[in-house]
Design a protein around this nucleic acid. Structure first.
Lengths: 148, 148
DNA sequence: ATACAATTATTGTATATACAAATGTATAGG
DNA sequence: CCTATACATTTGTATATACAATAATTGTAT
């Protein structure tokens, strides 16, 4: 990602500003590519993220606040995000019997099956995105990001 | 930014996946803080970006496709983004006399004035976001991001 | 000149998201 | 036991965004 070329600036950008812009450009590009990869499956990144969280629960259902807590990109309206996954029959929603304010959301077999297909795709996409990096560089990048 | 803590995972995340997630978490957090800083001025990050691009034109107006090309986060509908800036009287839109398909968008004095106020704020916010980094680390980070 | 394609921006429409208010449920204090 | 408060989610509504269709203008080939 060449910052100056991409945003067509000839003047010099201060290092701090350039870093922020650089990060934005990179993650925007990653998001675009991920969305594109998921598009044939008619699944958004957010929906994919929820499915993965639910699988990580290993059978134990999650409630809405748990999902919200764990989502990479938080949403202001997880109810309706889940609605869409229910429509696709990838998840189920039941009222929690021990506390009826809560809902229990769990992934269905159909959802798990879909996720297995997506796993391959996503792992490939991630690798493709990072193919210029050595393992050491990836570790270095993570160390730097940890400072935020 | 502690990835595992933030998304509440106990299992180990593969390095490549972790890197992508890490980037997302960091830029989401940056975006949140920037939006928050701009909020009192009722300006979105996108609108701010357009104003800055227009100032960079140094009097020379820009057309829509130029804006689109240069925006950090591209929009599918720059027309309506500009509409909002016109409503606030920060920019003006005229039909390009040499090619009437094009529009000429330019920043107004009021827009420039507003931008001067925002500059301080944004520069401060950027510094605050990056205060854990040395200049060397920032350069290092940019070098790594360049690999995308 | 005329027809056709290419360019540039706008508009319509469906969907997504943010934010606040409302709903239903549980808990704690008098 | 009653009421107030806190909690968890849902719903309403305004705004934002994506995507496709349309409109207007220009360039080009015949």
């Amino acid at each position: 990602m060449n910052v100056e070329e991409r945003i067509k600036t000839e003047g010099e950008i201060p290092l701090e500003r350039r870093t922020i812009i650089h990060l934005m450009l990179v993650t925007n590009s990653i998001n675009d590519k991920m969305s594109l990869a998921l598009k044939p499956f008619d699944i958004s990144i957010q929906q994919f993220n929820v499915l993965r969280i639910l699988r990580g629960q290993k059978g134990k259902p999650a409630n809405l606040s748990t999902l919200n807590e764990r989502m990479v990109t938080k949403m202001s309206n997880t109810t309706r995000l889940v609605d869409k996954l229910i429509l696709k029959e990838f998840v189920e929603r039941h009222i929690c019997p021990s506390n009826r304010r809560k809902v229990e959301i769990s992934i269905t077999d159909k959802g798990l099956e879909q996720l297995r297909k997506l796993d391959v795709l996503i792992t490939e996409t991630e690798s493709r995105l990072l193919n210029e990096f050595t393992v050491d560089e990836l570790k270095q990048l993570n160390t730097l990001l940890h400072k935020f």
